[in-house]
Design a protein around this nucleic acid. Structure first.
Lengths: 406, 406
DNA sequence: CTGTTAGCGCTTTCAA
DNA sequence: TTGAAAGCGCTAACAG
């Protein structure tokens, strides 16, 4: 039998006679034969998988998103590879990662502030250590790429065949990017928090955050907007995503004379820092100071923490980002091959309430981002090289989780 | 110019005349040419990179190990790719992951207890969703593989060319595996904890843990051994790695009549659960109950937690595992090509005290594991197919971090 | 339906 | 040193 036939038998079994197919498949696994992924991706141009690129291994939020996305892909018969890149941080910039900032100081970590960089062996300048990973990733030619978090060097992705659809999750897409991003709606989250706190009578609500990265900055803006819209005084203590930082900010706030009665922290970790500072200052929680935050990491749910927080619904973000990508890959909708779609779906996501998963979307941001202002007509632009269905960002409506802290 | 020459110019510039080389390199980057990773790995058999396989994206310990390993690889001019596999858990088994168990319950997670599995499109049985990732990984033919955490399906790795060295980090290598593993020495950690607690006068020290996985079981055994060796009573409240679980165990312990004065928890999260239960029961911490744990995650360092714990020195584990692999790849030691090794080393790990990094190793476990009893002679067995330098497990001596809780 | 023929983009002999 | 030629393991047109 010819090799071509064997190839067919694996790729499109239906087009091979039953006898042959049986013989091939049988012989294959008797010999332990498995088609070689690499050769395949070289020969066909473009592989059959969807790549997931994780920008930061340390961020647990990203892991959740990746899991959800992967489920979605699997449910649709697509494959996903996860490669990870360590985020290369500009020197001296605090990590966006809620975890790292709070590392216990006594560990044996030798990591410098600049992240993982190595002196270039080839070029002169430093390069991101994971450039290799990205290169490899690119050469594998994924059908589409889901980027989770912010990838430092946008140029790396540009090596992809230009028709490859890219979707960003949980990050604003880079400057002038035509790729959509899917993320939680921090403005909505902030509004939820204000509603809740004012509902409990708070009139002096402070914000802890604003530093450490884009997300922090956007949340600060959202805070200021809410405060103004409600005619409330704005009070900001600068902090990044770390507990330490929140602690310092909290101490500052606790010492103020007309003390705020509530604090909204940029993330759980900072919020915990605020709580710690408040306790230290002799305040009772939540009576003297209510604390709320963003992210709903598992930290917030610990008995001893019990922090009211905004759940960004990472699973939903991941799922939504994945669907978006799938749509771009197959704009016609669906029925093309393979396994019973619905069955697979139900099996892998039993109680998720999938049916209305697409309803709770806020309107696209519109003016707030360059990328978002791409012409809507591109949506159905079959004539374009990339028939990507829309480049508008998608905002997922977050959820308020009320706990003891506020 | 022939394509062959170009190839040479990239791989071994010295063997190409200066003129040609210049012209090639110049033209290359003017045209934006970059050698294709995939084609290269197909043509040459075996790529130039070392693969890092992460078993669980959610475990922050693993991320730390991966980072450290990557640094080590980079310092030696090798490349590393990280692919991730979601650990496929036997149905109903609690996660080994310290994080997941403690997830706040209100999120939108739709993940079933069985982890990410999809109904097989090809075969009949369920398969791990990430089988594809592993297949791809394998087909890329890494020079060596570092597995971080426990990979469920060992068979997956077996598809590698049999001479590929494999090292496990932070996991016991699978049954009968000939591959060495590098991990923290839990026995030593337990001894450290007992020394500390008895030094503070504690005589009734309980253990919370034992369930949820291999690591938990081993720590329980270590506890029992210490208690016996010191002629102290053993008191165990079963728990897995979650805070909930620790909370329940703590409540149980708090209600006992001759109450323990100290508790050692299987990990930070469980320890925090114990603290919460104790507080709830009206005990003062640490006066009425001292709590200590394992892992030194950033949790332990939070102001409001301040947990005395054992630092597994993940960075060291990662570094050590990486060296081990490098050694297996190049048993002769070092001088083979490329960049000034020492310079690179120093640059990327400034204050790490590298020089004595190899001194603090406990003796190999010996009898405790099958794999560890491989004949020492294999060490220099140049005649063997795999001249792997030693298959003994390496245990890293952990460190005690004393905080307020004990 | 099946076999044949070209490559995918590179690395490697092997001569020149 | 350089060029030419033969693949790596597969897929993608074709023709039979």
């Amino acid at each position: 039998m010819s090799t071509g036939l064997v190839s067919l038998a694996f790729k499109d079994p239906a087009r091979v006679s039953a006898v042959r197919r049986a013989r091939i498949l049988d012989a294959a696994d008797r010999l332990g034969y498995r088609p070689n992924f690499v050769a395949r991706s070289l020969a066909a141009d473009g592989s059959s998988f969807i790549g997931i690129l994780l920008s930061d291994l340390h961020n647990p939020l990203f892991a959740e998103i990746a899991d959800a996305a992967r489920q979605e892909f699997d449910a649709h018969g697509s494959y996903a590879l996860i490669a990870s890149a360590t985020k290369a941080r500009p020197e001296g910039r605090a990590p966006e990662n809620p975890e790292e900032g709070g590392q216990a100081g006594s560990g044996a970590s030798a990591r410098g502030p600049g992240g993982l960089r190595v002196p270039g062996a080839t070029g002169g300048a430093d390069r991101i250590a994971d450039e290799q990973v990205i290169a490899m990733f690119r050469d594998l030619r994924p059908r589409g790429v889901l980027v989770i978090g912010t990838i430092a060097d946008t140029a790396l992705l540009s090596g992809l065949p230009s028709a490859t659809p890219v979707v960003y999750a949980s990050a604003v897409s880079p400057e002038g990017s035509a790729h959509p991003s899917v993320r939680a709606d921090d403005d909505a989250g902030m509004a939820l928090l204000f509603d809740h706190l004012t509902g409990r009578g708070h009139q002096r609500i402070a914000f802890v955050g604003g530093a450490g990265g884009e997300v922090s900055r956007l949340r600060l803006e959202a805070y200021l907007a809410q405060a103004e819209a409600r005619g409330m005084p704005a009070l900001v203590a600068r902090a990044d995503f770390s507990e330490q930082s929140g602690y310092r900010a909290g101490a500052e706030l606790a010492g103020l004379d007309p003390r705020p009665t509530a604090v909204i922290a940029v993330n759980d970790l900072a919020g915990i820092g605020v709580q710690a500072a408040a306790e230290q200052a002799g305040l009772r929680l939540p009576a003297d100071l209510a604390v709320a935050a963003f992210d709903n990491t598992y930290l917030a749910g610990l008995h001893r923490i019990s922090l009211t927080t905004i759940d960004p619904r990472n699973a939903e973000v991941g799922r939504r980002a994945a669907s978006r990508l799938l749509l771009a890959l197959d704009p016609d909708g669906a029925r093309h091959a393979g396994l019973p779609r619905d069955g697979a779906r139900n099996a892998s996501a039993p109680g998720a309430g999938d049916s209305d998963a697409l309803r709770d979307v806020s309107s696209p941001i519109g003016e707030s981002r360059g990328a978002a202002s791409a012409p809507r007509s591109a949506r159905f632009g079959g004539a374009h090289a990339v028939a990507s269905p829309g480049t508008e960002d998608v905002l997922v409506r977050p959820e308020l989780i009320v706990r003891d802290s506020a």
